[in-house]
Design a protein around this nucleic acid. Structure first.
Lengths: 132, 132
DNA sequence: CTGTATCCCGGTTGATACTG
DNA sequence: CAGTATCAACCGGGATACAG
């Protein structure tokens, strides 16, 4: 059922199904905060202010937007406790947890290779300066 | 050396090192075309026009920009054959190939779960309409 | 504490035209 | 064929103020 791994192409056209699927997921995990939030929720539920403090540099607006997006995608649940002051907890769904593995794969790759990437960038930039 | 997997946090602060690393990589693979290009190059070198046709909806400008970025990061090599008309081939480096595994992890997850995501979105949107 | 509503800036993208 | 230049449009995202 799954279009098998290697051939992303068939003739000259992309597989529309897998491409759109990947594209959609990528635009979510590619945004500035989603992955961070998912990783923070990986080890248990957290409330809004905890997330905000943990990330530190996120605006209230963007955190709300991010959480709404994740909730809409079925990756997190939102639980309101109507006390005073109100309390809202966010928790990864099973689907959300299942995303952690693949994301960690990227994260580990990034950690293992960022030095090489930065070296490549410096080398590239140096070559550019020579040209100029 | 690698900050071990589960605790993304320590006290209340994020690990700066792994976060920046992941963030940098994510902003690359999170952009609209990089992953697509990497996957297309996974099974062998391709020339500029092949990539352009394969993707179809990418502008010439963005494909050039994407390829430059990947080249700068050391993920692809650019080989110019100064013929008339000129010919330029792009190929994944070893580093580029090593990224394919993790990316495929995300891709497989996306493929396996996009139906559930879309269902969750529809359910969420339906709930919103009720509120209105 | 949590969330919404505005305003606004800057980067990213696409369209188009031009060059080697 | 491959790439650059320019311009305009769009959209993410921050700051701020306000509300429940």
């Amino acid at each position: 059922m799954k279009p098998e791994n290697k051939p992303v192409t068939e003739g000259d056209k992309l597989f529309p199904c897998s491409c759109q699927a990947v594209g959609g997921v990528l635009s979510r995990i590619g945004d500035k905060w989603s992955v961070l939030v998912v990783m923070l929720l990986a080890d248990g539920p957290k409330r809004f202010s905890e997330l905000k403090r943990a990330i530190g540099t996120v605006s209230q607006r963007m955190l709300t937007l991010t959480l709404r997006g994740l909730e809409r995608d079925g990756l997190v649940t939102r639980t309101v406790t109507p006390s005073i002051p109100p309390r809202v907890d966010y928790e990864l769904t099973e689907l959300g947890h299942s995303l952690c593995g693949p994301v960690r794969g990227i994260g580990d790759w990034a950690f293992d290779n960022h030095a090489r990437i930065e070296a490549a960038q410096r080398a590239f930039d140096a070559r550019q300066e020579d040209a100029a």
